[in-house]
Amino acid sequence: MTGTVDWLRRYGALLRAAWLQDLQYRASIVLWLLWGVTEPAVALGIWWAIAADGPVQGYARADFARYFFALMLVNQLTIAWDSWYLDSWIRDGELNFRLARPIHPAHEAVAENIAYKARTAGMILVVWLIVAAVWPAVRLPFGADRWALTAAAVLLAAALRFFISFATGLLAFWTTRATAIMELHAGISLFLSGRLAPLALLPPAVARVAGFLWFPYMLAFPVDLLTGTVHGAALVQGFVGQVVWLAVWVGAYRLAWTRGLRKYGAVGG
């Protein structure tokens, strides 16, 4: 039991530090947020124009509006910048003092993620509520059970994206282009994770390939849960996919971490 209390205390301190640090950069955070919502906003604008003459494969204008608003929120809740941090920590040797601490550096990263997401997702929620008050298209059907499931899926997606980002960032132990690899991943995920369009609107072959990879579980699945378009077997399959791919990426992270540290000969070290 004391172990749990210890961990709560540690996380309390880490979260407080992360929150205060973000407070200092709150204007910058608003700009990152703005940047993060432009891509879905532009995509919504284009789909809105395309759906002018009637629904696109069952997606009417209002469905697109709901989809992309949900995407903005879920994306903000699951986004992970950790590969960029790790890349600079490893290259500048800032990892050293973090390794010397009696707590794994990943916990600091997790705390930063929680603080950042609480702040930015809170802002999106407020904007969403205001927009929903005047624009019925983006109102979501209320259902306690569905929202609980969505919360679980968002949490799993956030964990998945965190480990993808963290493990990829660790590649900086071996290469100077770790962030380029992460950008390549972002480029592929534009299509396969549903950022550009609901997966149902992609060519069927592409959607099928996406189903065999982790991308849909990063965004599309929790977004579809939130807008209420996943049911029955697809719902179960979604959660299974999330758990399986999370396990795979945790494994990749552990491998990269142990191997990488062995290789790491920090700046001046």
């Binding site: 200092q24 950069y25 204007a27 910058s28 700009l31 990152w32 703005l34 940047w35 432009t38 891509e39 532009v42 604008g45 284009i46």
Partner: peptide, 20 residues
């Protein structure tokens, strides 16, 4: 806004609209 170091992000956000 002296403390905002990532101002260039504003341009990227705006320019995103120029793709179409």
């Amino acid at each position: 806004f002296v403390s905002v170091e990532n101002l260039s992000v504003l341009f990227d956000a705006v320019y995103e609209g120029a793709r179409y």
